[in-house]
Design a protein around this nucleic acid. Structure first.
Lengths: 335, 335
DNA sequence: CTGAAAGCGCTTACAG
DNA sequence: CTGAAAGCGCTTACAG
């Protein structure tokens, strides 16, 4: 379609290799030649063909972003990861191939075997994620958001859900709450292997026991229309509970409406504390004290690790698993 | 990295061209040869290199998806378009390059001039969108979701916001409402050139005048935390109003909480009707009568039109502008 | 400082 | 029904 490097070479009166080197800066070009080349590039409106470059360099400068949309996940929260990944990638000179195929392993094999991407970022990684075996065969650098059971060869980033749970339980205990109710992610998230669900819950249960606090965990609803009834039933079942921990975006988003309808005042009647991102809180005007889930940081870190690995092939850096320390934002909804 | 077509040819004992033809099916291969080729492909785990294929065929089988994240837009609604586009593309054999650069025109030029994509889908198209001139120079097929002022050369899909407004006004008038309040998208959406905002509002105002109904339009809030106060102020300013039209996702999402807090019963005290997708309503458990905004249909249609054009280059089909007729779902929140 | 040439891994006229 | 060869548009040793 457009002009090729040969056109530029001809107009500038140099060889194609000289144009290529001028473009890459991989060897020095005399000032005057350089000038003629860039003039020609500008005049012709030349842009190097990505496919040809990829074929020659074996680098596409494209990253695969694999996400899955589970019906029991709350879509609004996902976009924050996507945005963080995309923007970081661009800043590092990479584009993003977005893959949402239902068959994640097959999709991964496809984009990787065909050389469409230099590396991949996996979102929504499960404890025993079926994409990981494929990834290991593919011999491509990869970073994940989410902690799998086997982190071998991966750069892994996730929130430290255990620490988050302990911090939240301690926070409530220090305020003197004797009985706490926890709403966890929906049951399908547990059975599917969404490890963050039990990492948080189990740590909360343990910490509560250690601190001598009564804590009961209940599954949140996957079906939004049932959230009000379920929250109501949970609160009814624990009339003595003075604090509620919400580890479920869908429930958190509806909580003001649900508690408002029940006439429950926060923190007067009930202390509420949750786990989500500041951006999420802003989008839904959630007034609760929360632990930041840090999608921006996690997405950005994953991409930066991946890019670093791509830009330093065979480098000395061991794959890293980083669990981000929780950060509690006190909005005054507990006391 | 992996095996190439030459490896397959050697193992199968045929020429590279025969392997290529076996793969593409563009000429007939004897049964036995075919068998040997596919055995070799399977044994070697061969997948054709996408870059090399793109270079030879001048088709990448990748579509660019350009979206912009404006801070005054409600992120949760965007994902539905992305999913529809991505899934439709895959079903048609295309992958998606997701581009979210702040500088849309530059990003478009980049992916298009470098031949990274065969065509593009533009989301959030403005009335006078700065990406369109770039697109026209690029000579690539493109489809949009959103109606620009100049549709020349584009396949354009959008909801018929004018018809939607008229249908909603008529619906309320038929129920006997003499005074209606409309909450529009935030003011920045208008000034930026988000044409759907005024297409809906102006049609609503006109239709109300035509029908002898009093209708007042107010800007919705871009800042979620101010939505409750703004909705309250709007209702206070129109104590006689018996019906509320909401054309703003952020406001709609918070409406149950806001109206609940004010003690406003729907439809007892106030009839409420809105404009969003069924999926959106489900995510936020919104119980209101609404006109379907059809993100799935629009995203899918745009991709299908684009793919059709790519698969039939130089075809006879004129570019099409399709405004999808509104469909009202009665959930009983008006009377 | 610069160029001629090989090579990246495919596809597709051209020939038989 | 099949193969040898040119070509897609780059990059990069190799040579000077």
């Amino acid at each position: 379609m457009g002009p090729t490097i040969a056109d530029v070479a001809r107009v500038a009166g140099v060889s194609r290799s000289t144009v290529s080197y001028a473009l890459s800066g991989k060897r020095s070009i005399s000032g005057e030649t350089r000038q003629r080349i860039f003039d020609a590039i500008r005049d012709l409106g030349f842009t190097a063909n990505a496919g040809a470059r990829a074929l020659a360099t074996r680098r596409t400068m494209v990253l695969g972003l694999l996400m899955q949309f589970e019906p029991d996940e709350f879509a609004p929260a996902m976009l924050q990861y996507v945005m963080a990944v995309t923007e970081t990638a661009r800043r590092k000179g990479y584009d993003i191939l977005l893959v949402t195929d239902h068959d994640g392993p097959a999709a991964l094999r496809r984009i990787t075997d065909s050389g469409m991407v230099d590396g991949v970022v996996l979102l929504d990684v499960l404890h025993d994620d079926p994409r990981l075996p494929v990834l290991r065969e593919a011999h491509r650098p990869a970073a994940t958001v989410g902690l799998p059971a086997d982190t071998e060869g991966l750069d892994v980033y996730d929130l430290d859900f255990g620490a988050a749970a302990r911090q939240i339980v301690d926070h409530l205990r220090d305020l003197g709450h004797p009985e706490i109710v926890l709403i966890t992610p929906p049951r399908p998230v547990f059975s599917r292997g969404g490890a963050y669900s039990w990492r948080f819950r189990d740590a909360a249960v343990e910490q509560a026991a250690r601190r001598g606090v009564r804590l009961t965990a209940h599954y949140g609803e996957a079906d939004p229309s049932r959230i009000p009834a379920t929250v109501g039933a949970v609160l009814d079942a624990h009339p003595q509970a003075t604090a509620l921990i919400v580890h479920n975006d869908a429930t958190a988003a509806m909580l003001p409406a649900v508690l408002g309808a029940r006439g429950v005042a926060v923190p007067g009647d009930l202390s509420v504390i949750s786990l989500y991102s500041a951006d999420f809180a802003r989008t839904f005007s959630l007034p609760y004290t929360f632990v930041e889930s840090a999608p921006g940081l996690l997405g950005r870190s994953a991409v930066e690790a991946l890019v670093h690995r791509l830009d330093h092939p065979g480098g000395p850096d061991r794959p890293v698993t980083r669990l981000v320390a929780p950060h509690l934002i006190d909005r005054g909804s507990t006391r």
